[in-house]
Amino acid sequence: MTQLSEEVLRDPVACTRALCDIPSVSGDEEAITAAIVSALGDRSYLSLQRLGNTLIYRTDLGRDKRIMLAGHTDTVPVNDNFPTRLEGDTLWGLGTSDMKSGTALALWIAANLDSDQFGGLDNLPYDLSFAFYDCEEVEADRNGLNKVAKAHPAWLDADFAILLEPTYGLVEAGCQGTLRARVHTSGKRSHSARSWLGDNAIHHAGEVLNRLKAYPAAEVDIDGCLYREGLNAVFVNGGIAGNVIPDSCWVEVNYRFAPNKSVEQAFAHVNEIFEGFEVELTDSSPAAQPGLDRSAAQQFVQAAGGEVNAKLGWTDVARFSQLGVPAMNFGPGDPNLAHTHEEHVEQDKIRHCAQVLRRYLSQNNH
Rank of each mutant, 00 (worst) to 15 (best):
residue 6 E to R: 15
residue 13 V to C: 13
residue 20 C to L: 10
residue 25 V to S: 06
residue 27 G to P: 04
residue 34 A to W: 00
residue 36 I to Y: 13
residue 37 V to K: 15
residue 40 L to P: 00
residue 41 G to N: 04
residue 46 L to A: 12
residue 46 L to E: 10
residue 49 Q to T: 12
residue 50 R to N: 02
residue 50 R to Y: 07
residue 54 T to V: 01
residue 61 L to K: 09
residue 65 K to A: 15
residue 68 M to C: 14
residue 69 L to I: 13
residue 77 P to C: 04
residue 89 D to N: 15
residue 89 D to G: 15
residue 90 T to N: 06
residue 91 L to F: 05
residue 94 L to H: 01
residue 96 T to G: 05
residue 97 S to P: 07
residue 101 S to F: 06
residue 112 N to H: 07
residue 116 D to M: 07
residue 119 G to Y: 00
residue 136 E to V: 04
residue 143 N to M: 10
residue 144 G to V: 02
residue 147 K to G: 07
residue 148 V to M: 08
residue 157 D to V: 05
residue 160 F to L: 02
residue 162 I to Q: 03
residue 168 Y to T: 05
residue 177 G to K: 00
residue 179 L to S: 01
residue 179 L to F: 05
residue 188 K to P: 09
residue 195 S to W: 09
residue 195 S to Q: 06
residue 196 W to N: 01
residue 202 I to Q: 10
residue 207 E to Q: 01
residue 212 L to Y: 08
residue 212 L to D: 11
residue 215 Y to G: 02
residue 221 D to L: 15
residue 223 D to A: 14
residue 226 L to V: 12
residue 229 E to R: 10
residue 232 N to I: 02
residue 244 V to H: 03
residue 257 F to G: 08
residue 262 S to N: 03
residue 264 E to L: 08
residue 264 E to G: 11
residue 266 A to S: 06
residue 271 N to K: 13
residue 279 V to I: 02
residue 281 L to A: 13
residue 283 D to Q: 10
residue 286 P to Y: 07
residue 299 Q to P: 00
residue 305 G to C: 15
residue 309 N to C: 09
residue 312 L to N: 03
residue 321 S to D: 15
residue 324 G to C: 03
residue 325 V to M: 03
residue 328 M to L: 05
residue 334 D to R: 08
residue 341 H to R: 13
residue 342 E to T: 05
residue 352 H to T: 09
residue 356 V to F: 02
residue 363 Q to K: 04
residue 364 N to T: 09
residue 366 H to Q: 11
